[in-house]
Amino acid sequence: HTVDVQGVTYHFDNPEEARKFAEEMAKRLGLQVHVKDGRYKVE
């Protein structure tokens, strides 16, 4: 499970961890979480 944050890619084994990380980063950076091709993108 992959999370892209402003061009940096993070990998997680656990989909729940990936989702939480994406939401946390989006909140911290004031950005949105998009799901695209099964990847989380924070932009």
Results as ranks from 00 to 15, higher is better:
A22L: 01
E43V: 09
E43I: 08
T2Q: 13
F12C: 07
M25L: 07
K36Y: 05
Q32K: 13
K27F: 10
A18R: 01
A18N: 00
H1W: 11
Q6L: 15
Q32R: 10
R19D: 03
F21C: 06
V42T: 03
K27W: 07
K36R: 12
D13L: 10
L31E: 03
Y10G: 01
Q6C: 15
E17M: 12
T2K: 12
A18G: 04
V33E: 01
M25H: 06
R19I: 07
E17A: 12
H1E: 05
H11E: 12
F12D: 00
H1K: 09
P15M: 12
E24K: 09
E23R: 06
A22C: 05
E17I: 09
V35W: 14
A18W: 00
Y40N: 04
Q32V: 15
H11L: 12
F12K: 01
H1Q: 08
Y10H: 08
H11T: 13
V33T: 03
K36C: 13
E43P: 03
P15I: 09
H1T: 14
V3S: 01
G38R: 04
E17L: 09
K20D: 11
K41V: 15
Y40H: 06
E23I: 12
R28Q: 13
E24C: 14
K20G: 10
E16K: 08
F21R: 01
M25G: 02
E23Y: 15
V42D: 03
F12G: 00
Y40S: 05
K20V: 12
R28P: 02
Y10F: 12
L29M: 07
M25E: 14
H34C: 13
G30D: 06
V8S: 08
A18C: 10
V5R: 01
D37C: 15
L31P: 00
V3E: 00
V3R: 00
G38W: 02
T9Q: 11
Y40E: 04
R28E: 10
D37M: 03
R19C: 11
F21Y: 07
V3P: 00
A26F: 02
K20A: 13
D37T: 02
A22T: 01
V5A: 06
R19P: 02
V8C: 15
D13K: 09
E43M: 09
E17H: 10
P15A: 13
K27P: 01
R39D: 15
G30A: 04
G30K: 06
E16V: 11
T2N: 10
N14D: 13
E16R: 09
Q32E: 10
V5K: 01
F21M: 04
F21T: 02
K41F: 15
R28C: 15
L29A: 03
G38Y: 03
V8M: 11
A22S: 04
D13P: 11
Y40D: 04
T9S: 12
L31F: 08
V42E: 03
H34E: 07
F21A: 03
D13G: 10
V8R: 12
H11Q: 11
L31M: 14
D4W: 12
Q6G: 08
V3Q: 00
E24L: 11
G7D: 07
L31C: 12
L31D: 02
T9V: 14
V35H: 08
G38T: 04
P15N: 15
R39C: 15
G30V: 03
A26E: 02
Q6W: 08
P15H: 11
K27A: 13
L31V: 06
V35M: 12
V35D: 05
N14C: 15
H1P: 09
G38P: 03
G38N: 07
N14I: 09
E43Q: 07
G38I: 02
V3T: 03
V5N: 02
D37L: 04
Y40R: 05
E16L: 10
E23C: 14
V42H: 03
F12S: 00
A26T: 02
V5H: 04
R39A: 14
K27R: 13
R28G: 06
A26S: 05
N14W: 09
G7V: 01
T9W: 09
A26P: 00
V5I: 08
E24Y: 12
H1I: 11
R28L: 13
V33I: 07
G30R: 05
E43N: 06
Y40C: 11
D37Q: 04
K41T: 15
D4A: 06
D13Q: 10
F12M: 03
V33F: 06
P15C: 13
Q6V: 14
A22P: 00
F21D: 00
G30L: 03
T2F: 15
R19K: 12
A26D: 01
T2C: 07
A18M: 03
F12Q: 00
R28F: 08
K20T: 12
H34P: 01
Q6Y: 11
A26K: 01
V3Y: 00
V8D: 09
F12A: 01
E24H: 10
D13E: 13
D13R: 07
G30Q: 05
E23N: 10
P15R: 13
R39E: 14
R39P: 01
R19T: 05
Y10A: 04
V35F: 15
H34V: 14
K20E: 13
D13W: 08
T9D: 07
F21N: 02
H34N: 09
T9Y: 12
Y10I: 06
T9N: 08
N14T: 14
Q32S: 13
R39M: 13
E23D: 09
T2W: 15
T9K: 08
A26I: 01
V8P: 01
V5Q: 01
Y10Q: 04
V33C: 08
A22E: 00
D13A: 10
V3G: 00
V33Q: 02
Q6M: 14
D4C: 08
G7A: 04
D37N: 11
V42L: 08
H34I: 14
K41A: 11
A18K: 01
V33A: 04
T9G: 06
K27Q: 12
E24P: 00
V33R: 00
D4H: 07
N14Q: 10
V8H: 11
G7W: 04
H1L: 10
D4E: 14
P15K: 14
F12L: 03
D4K: 05
F12P: 00
L31W: 08
